[in-house]
Design a protein around this nucleic acid. Structure first.
Length: 667
DNA sequence: AGGTGAGCATTTTTT
DNA sequence: ATGCTCACCT
């Protein structure tokens, strides 16, 4: 290891990067160069002769996986970098399951149900299982099911309860559709490896060094998976995380995985990364003072050699409208006086709903902004349609996909016919598709309906054969399928504006184009492409890195990001420790959430709270978050809106006033 | 089918 | 205030 370049790592980072065998726990505080360290470790392992193809890095997001691969590519030989696997938990599970799901009674061509598909199926199950007067809320059922799955295979299904009945029925339905939801991918992959050690061993043999990023966000199943995949004795597993940034408990993440790492992987080497390369000491001081109020933590103190910096400001403002106005003007003045790009500013809040007032004010001032998150990008009808066509081709048992496309576009197979087919399929214990191909069924239909069905299924059959021919031009074939049924025309017909039609059409074309490119770079065909699309819903805001401006983002979504100048808004009691989390007893997690927010800031941090705000339509009195008491100390200033407004104006403020006037005149 | 209105709850969302 | 769901209507 003498000759290895350590890429400017500090001593602790070097220690972590050059650990060779056995469990390693890297406690990496915010901004301490975590990614740099693990990628350097990968480079180091390769330099020590570890086969890059036997290094596996598991992340939570595709973005993180891509970033890691990119960073590695900058450190080692390109071929070696390409051989390293960086994958999300879910994508890895799909790879495992595509090989051997048949051992669990699924077919290897199972469909992946996204949240929308899942909700649809749960709703259907509820109408079947529940009496009219005691319907269980489908959102509740969904979260119950998810919790049950994530907490482990043996979780009781509540034999007698209604929720238990819904769960069991839902699972049966999924199975008969040959489909898995996101949680199932984990459940089934773990089950597969636990019940079939030879499958586990096959994967273990391919993994000599296993790394897990954001370990504080793992749930029980993911922990088990790590245990199954790690090879060596003691296992060569390196996990990286920060217990203080565990903010996904409500989604099933279990902090005890990282807190009690030693229990799962005895005698690990534990390394703390505490030197922070991101923030001023003013900001770190506030963060440290806050987080030390949490019980049950490994304990860590972020420090930085750079001195104080701008004080952290806590500002009380009269109400949420004034808050939004104030912040936007503050940003405008700040960026004007120091000639900064808008991208240096972020406004971070607890709830998406809080973005609205900010957006209004930013628009009024003609300030560019990008809103991260929200739900608007998710469900694009046309994309789901095309995916349903592809899914139905690959997995004919998937009634849901088939139902989606059977009369989209309208092809003369109406609701009545579908109902008939469905009951026929239930009676004969077939899939819907089998029923449609069944002469016995076709005879019960009208001549017209039977013809329509025949045309439809024949086309699917033919396409399936063409697609499964090795080397076939898949994108072209799918494109033809869609052309032939006039999908586009029908889709455009149902659009309200020509603009919308254009947009959707472009989405479909993009989808086909992406399929074509996928085929060029991969041998996994249509199935592989569908998996990728299902598990990697590229969010537009990530893709469009060119459209920049002030960032509006929730604290959750901000984890892992950094901004020179940060505003944390709406830091009020009942809002930041959210009332709901107080009731649920998860205030610690709220404190960590605030900690995440604070540690996003590099140079300046301004925290505001409102004395009143409009809640549920009516104005309510508010108190400051109790967390604000905790961060007070050196380099933290408290002010009020009134004090700031009554201060004599400096030149900058005058300029800002002009800017405001100008904006008002033109807006 | 697809649109309209009453009724209702109202955090966060990597896959 | 607002957005979403479900039931009912055209």
């Amino acid at each position: 290891m003498s000759k290895f370049r350590f890429f400017d790592l500090n001593p602790e980072q070097q220690d972590a990067a050059s650990h060779e065998h056995g469990p390693l726990l890297i406690l990496a505080g915010a901004g301490t160069g975590k990614t740099r360290t693990i990628t350097a470790r990968i480079a180091w392992l390769i330099s020590q002769g570890v086969d890059p193809a036997k290094i596996m890095a598991v992340t939570f997001t595709n973005k993180a996986a891509r970033e890691m691969k990119d960073r590695i590519a900058g450190m080692v030989d390109p071929d070696q970098a390409k051989a390293v696997t960086a994958s999300t938990f879910h994508a890895l599970c799909v790879r495992i399951l595509r090989g051997d799901a048949n051992r669990l009674g699924y077919k290897n061509n199972f469909s992946i149900f996204d949240e929308g598909d899942q909700t649809g199926l749960i709703k259907k199950v509820i109408t079947r299982v529940c009496a009219k007067d005691e319907k269980i809320d489908h959102n509740l059922a969904k979260s119950l099911i998810s919790k049950a799955k994530n907490s482990g295979l043996n979780a009781s299904t509540d034999e007698n309860s209604l929720a238990g009945a819904v769960y069991r029925r839902y699972q049966e339905e999924l199975h008969s559709l040959n489909a898995m939801d996101f949680d199932d991918l984990l459940v089934q992959a773990v089950k597969l490896m636990e019940e079939h050690p030879e499958v586990r061993d096959k994967w273990r043999a391919r993994i000599e060094q296993l790394m897990v990023d954001e370990f504080q966000d793992t749930n029980g199943l993911q922990l088990r998976m790590v245990g199954l995949l790690a090879s060596g004795d003691p296992p060569n597993v390196c996990v990286v995380g920060d217990d203080d940034q565990s903010i996904y408990g409500w989604r099933g993440a279990d902090v005890s995985n990282i807190l009690e790492f030693e229990r799962h992987f005895p005698n690990p080497k534990v390394i703390r990364l505490e030197q922070n390369y991101r923030s001023t000491n003013a900001i770190l001081g506030a963060a440290n003072r806050l987080i030390r109020n949490n019980p049950r933590r490994r304990g860590k103190n972020l420090w930085s050699p750079q001195q104080g910096g701008e004080p952290v400001r806590i500002i009380a403002v009269p109400d949420d409208r004034k808050e939004a106005e104030f912040i936007v003007e503050e940003i405008a003045a700040h960026r004007r006086s120091q000639n900064l790009p808008w991208e240096h500013f972020a406004i971070i809040y607890r709830m998406n709903a809080q973005s609205r007032l900010l957006e209004e004010n930013l628009r009024k001032h003609k300030i560019p902004y990008r809103l991260v998150g929200g739900k608007s990008f998710f469900e694009r009808r046309e994309i789901k349609d095309i995916m349903a066509y592809m899914t139905a081709l690959l997995n004919p048992s998937d009634d849901q996909s088939l139902l989606r496309i059977i009369n989209t576009p309208p092809r003369g197979i109406g609701a009545t016919t579908v109902e008939l087919a469905l009951s026929h399929s239930v009676e004969h214990r077939q899939s819907l598709y089998e029923a449609l191909r069944h002469d016995l069924f076709l005879e019960t239909c009208t001549r017209k309906a039977a013809d329509a069905i025949k045309r439809f299924t024949d086309e699917l059959e033919e396409t399936r054969i063409r697609v499964s021919t090795p080397g076939a031009p898949i994108a072209e074939i799918i494109s033809t399928l869609i052309e032939n049924c006039d999908y586009m025309e029908d889709m455009k017909r149902t659009c309200k504006t020509p603009d919308e039609a254009m947009n959707r059409e472009e989405n479909v074309r993009e989808m086909i184009r992406a399929l074509d490119e996928y085929q060029k770079r991969s041998k996994d065909g249509l199935q592989g492409y569908l998996d990728e699309v299902s598990l990697d819903r590229e969010r537009e805001e990530d893709k469009a890195e060119t459209a920049l401006g002030v960032t509006l983002i929730t604290m959750h979504a901000a984890k892992g990001l950094e901004f020179p100048h940060v505003h944390l808004i709406g830091v009020e009691d009942g809002f930041l420790p959210h009332d709901r989390s107080k009731a649920e007893g998860t205030v610690d997690e709220e404190r960590r959430l605030f900690y995440v927010g604070i540690t996003r800031a590099m140079k300046s941090l301004i925290i505001t709270w409102c004395r009143a705000r409009v809640k549920f339509g009516s104005p309510m009195h508010c108190l400051p978050s109790p967390f604000l008491q905790e961060i007070k100390g050196e380099h933290v200033e408290e002010e009020t809106y009134e004090e700031i407004m009554s201060r004599p104006m400096g030149e900058e403020d005058i300029m800002a006033q002009f800017a405001k006037l100008r904006a008002q005149l033109s807006g």
